[in-house]
């Protein structure tokens, strides 16, 4: 028994770093190919968002075939690494458009760009996009928490580091718990994708669950990380804002890709009603299908 008990997924930092560089190369290529775009702010904004969509969809397409499922592990590493690095958003450019809402949201949502490109017609691609957003959200949650943990060690008030205050410890502990739940659920969905592919009957339900659990985790981490940082976290010069703004935008994408937060909840609730039990529905959704190898 013990010998056969291996994790379905395991993280490898070196693979992640290499994958992150590969993603950057891909992004650079895409920008070069789009060099003929008029260089106004709206175009740049649109292009940035479309880059995200194409990059994610490119992975999804490459990985949709049954032969290429294993490659999802690499794709996950790429998405996580890119999300962790959180390249700075060119806010001066965005603010120049005068569109304050857009400046807060960062750029038009992936969902709208995907819709423009006719992607929602491809249900499996949309699932891949949603899983990609889950992976990015987990990476950004972890990055925001890591920044907070470092900050509360460095920052001293009342003669001691903030980390010595129990109120701070508990607030960040709760944030870490939500991150752990988010990562566990995302890894479960990723394992489902790797094992069963985009056509898995379980994948939509797991992504609905992720849209709810990650959605809540973002609230908790957004609150705790900014509270721990004080005013510095609410500036453009300190990196926390990149993760926060990404989290807010990616949550919007994830939930809209799934039709909205309430639809996710209602679909899972209907599954429980159909199974005549919450517990029956949960165990069924977590049980690997017959399709896996």
């Amino acid at each position: 028994m013990t010998a056969t008990l291996q994790p379905v997924l395991s993280a490898d930092a070196m693979v992640r770093d290499a994958a992150g560089r590969a993603f950057d190369d891909l992004a650079a290529d895409w920008f070069r190919s789009e060099a003929t775009f008029p260089d106004d702010a709206a175009r740049v904004r649109k292009r940035q968002a479309l880059l995200n969509a194409v990059a994610a969809l490119g992975f999804a397409d490459a990985l949709a075939s049954p032969d290429a499922r294993e490659a999802w592990v690499d794709a996950a590493s790429i998405l996580r690494a890119q999300a962790r690095s959180a390249a700075p958003i060119d806010m001066a450019l965005l603010l120049a458009t005068g569109d304050r809402l857009a400046s807060i949201a960062g750029d038009p949502s992936l969902y709208e760009c995907a819709a423009d490109a006719g992607l929602p017609g491809n249900a499996q691609a949309v699932l891949a996009l949603a899983l990609g957003r889950c992976l990015q959200i987990c990476a950004a949650l972890e990055a925001a928490l890591d920044l907070s943990l470092q900050y509360v060690q460095d920052r001293r008030q009342f003669g001691r580091p903030l980390a010595r205050f129990q109120a701070i410890q508990h607030s960040l502990a709760i944030a870490a718990e939500e991150l752990a739940a988010s990562t566990a659920l995302t890894d479960l969905a990723l394992a489902c994708m790797v094992r069963e592919g985009c056509a898995s009957a379980r994948l939509p339900g797991l992504l609905d669950a992720a849209a709810l659990v990650l959605g809540h985790a973002i609230d908790v981490v957004y609150d705790a990380s900014h509270q721990a940082h004080g005013a510095i976290g609410f500036t453009r010069e300190y990196p926390l804002h990149r993760h926060s703004l990404n989290l807010l935008r990616w949550r919007d994408d994830l939930q809209r890709l799934r039709g909205g937060e309430l639809r996710c909840a209602e679909r899972l609730g209907d599954a429980a009603l159909q199974a005549q039990g919450v517990w029956s529905a949960v165990t069924a959704l977590m049980q690997p299908g017959d399709r896996h190898d």
Binding site: A209, E266, M286
Partner: peptide, 16 residues
């Protein structure tokens, strides 16, 4: 329906 769904979602994460 919404409550049952939210319950299921968190249960899946915790159980995993």
């Amino acid at each position: 329906r919404e409550a049952l769904g939210r319950t299921s979602a968190k249960l899946i994460a915790l159980r995993s």
